[in-house]
Simulated assay, not measured.
Amino acid sequence: MKIFLHNDSVKLENGAELPGLEIAYHTYGEMNADKSNVVWICHALTANSDAEDWWEGLVGDGKLMDPSKYFIVCANILGSCYGSSGPMTNDPSTGEPYYSGFPDVTIRDMVNAHELLRVHLGVDKIWLGLGGSMGGYQILEWACSQNNLIENMVLLVTGAKESAWAIAVHEAQRLAIEADNTWRDHNKEAGRDGLIAARGIGMLTYRNYETYVAVQSDDEEKLDDFKAASYIKYQGNKLADRFNAYVYWLLTKSMDSHNLGRGRGGIEKALTGVTAPALVIGIESDILCPVEEQKKLAAALPNGSYIEIKSGYGHDGFLIESDAIHAAINAFLS
């Protein structure tokens, strides 16, 4: 992991200012002489900049996104806790972590941070912008703000605006965090139990009824200690061990405000200006970002195409169904 330090102040979309930025990022491979082999991957809510780790089915030696062919960049998003400026980094004015003092950020702010890194790296064109879920929001926002920068896009389980359904899910998750009486304490463990509960809520939307029944049903006649309950607790604790409640609260807020049409005359007008070829991929069983959203997105993009992958893994399918996604992207790029 590398760190880019931007020492000038940065104004956020809501008018707040940060005195500077730290951006954590990974690169794989080398940029070629004409800078035509850049692949920029944007990550989702709780991931980090090491795309070779969390998207191992697509990124790495011998994979579709092979560092021997491409210069691959992935940056940790603004507001996260994996090296980039966020609630857990130090406020220069106090020398202590920001915690609740870190300002709200938007997807647009995250893209502006990516743009600073792009210039620092000397990237003139992005041959392929690739992102799933919240990562797709960033690729779309970037394409709207700089139409000629990204030459091809692959957008998985994503949309042009956060849905009322997803906002409601996020609010339920934030309510769980806020109900933890340690929430707002100034330490890294603040809101841990609330984060566990929030992750549990999220896990209900990342998969679906069929998956839980197929995998988490109990054979014996039990009165307690059900597999599904243990699974939810396990996933909640697993996230709480590596993430932070302040960050989760902040980043779900940033997703709620995702709206490509804000300040651009509406979504339809904003998407009309995005002329790069775009492959939109939906997962048949996704209940968080249903396929209807991806179909609308593909239809609204001037050079959009849509493919639907059959999978029982729901929203998480974009991280799991590597073979099918590999085939779809390969066909698109060919």
Rank of each mutant, 00 (worst) to 15 (best):
K2W: 04
I3S: 06
V10S: 01
E13M: 08
L18Q: 11
E22M: 13
E22N: 13
A24R: 12
Y25A: 07
S36T: 15
S36M: 07
N37H: 10
N37K: 01
S49N: 11
S49H: 13
W54S: 14
L58H: 07
G60W: 11
G60M: 12
L64E: 10
D66G: 11
P67C: 06
V73C: 08
G79M: 05
G79K: 00
C81P: 05
Y82W: 13
S84T: 09
G86H: 10
P87T: 01
M88S: 12
D91I: 03
T94R: 06
T94K: 12
Y99F: 15
F102W: 04
P103L: 02
V105R: 03
R108I: 00
H114S: 01
L116W: 00
R118W: 01
V119W: 00
H120D: 12
H120E: 15
H120M: 05
L128D: 00
S133A: 09
S133I: 03
G135A: 07
Q138E: 09
S145F: 02
Q146I: 00
N148D: 13
N152K: 15
V154M: 05
T158Q: 03
A160P: 09
W165E: 11
H170L: 01
L175C: 14
A176I: 12
I177H: 10
E178I: 08
A179F: 13
H186K: 15
K188R: 15
K188C: 03
R192W: 08
G194T: 11
G194E: 14
G194D: 07
I196D: 07
A198D: 14
G202F: 01
L204K: 13
R207V: 06
Q216T: 02
Q216K: 14
D225E: 10
F226H: 14
F226V: 05
Y234K: 06
G236Y: 08
K238T: 10
D241T: 05
D241G: 08
N244I: 03
L250R: 07
L251H: 05
D256E: 15
G263Y: 08
G265M: 01
I267H: 08
E268D: 15
L279T: 09
G282F: 00
I287Y: 02
E292G: 02
E293N: 14
L297A: 00
I309A: 04
K310G: 06
H315E: 04
S322Q: 05
I329R: 09
N330Y: 01
A331T: 12
